[in-house]
């Protein structure tokens, strides 16, 4: 453990806020893609709620990232004027929606992670990150509850839903290891108590997922070829397309306000 400072530096805050903000922004985009395509009208409203909550978190986090960066960039400049190699989100959140089982599995993995992380970040030593986490953890709990309910129902529903759920788990499992990778910004933040160390949330995450899957007649895939690189800006091909869509209008009018 290094003893460089008792509090997280501005650069340190920037790096954490950017990574977590990008997670929220990209996942919000994916969830918004469900608009007018949800399996039932009630679920249409629920998915939009998740997307809206995450977009709100993204805006707070990117604003904080901009303020601590010291280059005068606001949430929009960070969202619209970075290329995919500059995005710091997890590979998990940029994976395409697939079917409803894939979307709910992705949500389960991410919300379990976010809830554990935010709960500890809210009690952490960096007050601005703690404030965002304190609000976000309530939302994450709700997202988690929603995805848990659906994973149970799809896992224990029909033969088809069970098959689709198991396939979704196998599809997304390789991206779960990255959630707990000790990236340098996370280690620096953990050293001063702004974030928990990755190991502190990895165990509860596994325990929680394993228990739910077991109760839902689903099996943990046996897979060890982990995919990672998102936190370093090495993404899947999917992110480039997502950003092309998200950014094209804003970039087509460089000096405009909206």
């Amino acid at each position: 453990m290094t003893v460089e400072a008792a509090e997280l530096s501005a650069v340190g805050i920037h790096e954490v806020a950017l990574a977590l903000g990008d997670d929220c922004l990209v996942l919000s985009h994916r969830l918004a893609e469900w608009t007018a395509h949800a399996p039932e009208l009630e679920e249409e409203v629920a998915l939009a709620n998740l997307a809206l909550d995450l977009l709100g978190q993204a805006r707070s986090l990117l604003t904080l990232a901009g303020e601590t960066e010291g280059r005068g960039r606001d949430e929009d400049q960070l969202a619209y004027w970075r290329d995919d190699r500059e995005f710091r989100n997890l590979l998990l959140v940029e994976q395409p929606n697939g079917d409803f089982a894939v979307t709910m599995t992705r949500q389960l993995f991410f919300s379990t992670y976010q809830e554990l992380l935010y709960a500890r970040m809210a009690a952490g030593t960096e007050p601005r990150l703690a404030a965002i986490a304190a609000k976000g953890v309530m939302e994450a709990r709700y997202h988690l509850e929603h995805s848990r309910l659906w994973v149970q129902r799809l896992g224990g529903g029909t033969e088809e839903s069970h098959r689709r759920m198991q396939r979704a788990l196998e599809l997304l499992w390789p991206y779960t290891h990255e959630l707990f990778e000790a990236s340098p910004p996370w280690v620096r933040a953990a050293d001063v108590g702004a974030l928990p160390p990755p190991t502190a949330i990895e165990e509860p995450w596994r325990h929680s997922i394993e228990a739910l899957l077991a109760a839902s007649q689903l099996e943990i895939p046996d897979f060890r070829a982990w995919q990672s690189g998102g936190r370093q800006g090495r993404h899947s091909e999917h992110l480039g397309h997502l950003l092309a869509e998200m950014q094209h209008l804003h970039r087509s009018h460089p000096n405009a306000t909206w």
């Binding site: 399996p39 039932e40 409803f100 129902r153 529903g157 088809e160 689709r164």
Partner: peptide
């Protein structure tokens, strides 16, 4: 398409 692609989800929830 939304209606048809959602059919298996609605059915799964009913079955559960």
């Amino acid at each position: 398409a939304a209606d048809q692609e959602g059919a298996w989800v609605r059915e799964a929830a009913r079955a559960w």
